[in-house]
Amino acid sequence: MATPNTPLWEVFIRSRNGLAHKHVGSLHASDATMALQAARDIYTRRGEGLSIWVVPSTAITASDPAEKAMMFEPAESKIYRHPTFYEVPEEVGHM
């Protein structure tokens, strides 16, 4: 008999206060409580974390890589959004 699937969870860990939670991997757990415990036991054995988020993998909506051009390329031409676009004389100092 095929083994029934246990839900998949994505794990995010804040390694230090001041840093954002970062995706570190995934795991299987029957519910959120168990997922959080498993995340602690699997992904923080070497003091890697101060805070954990677990999210059901099915709850993630991802952009389609095939739409990469439409989604992201239009931003590339807006160079005026970057500070280096503007010229400030050196005498003015750091700005």
């Binding site: 246990t6 795991l27 299987h28 757990a29 168990m34 415990q37 498993a38 036991d41 699997i42 054995r45």
Partner: peptide
Amino acid sequence: PMMEEDMALSN
């Protein structure tokens, strides 16, 4: 019974 528990019980 599951690998996640191998990890937990070992801890």
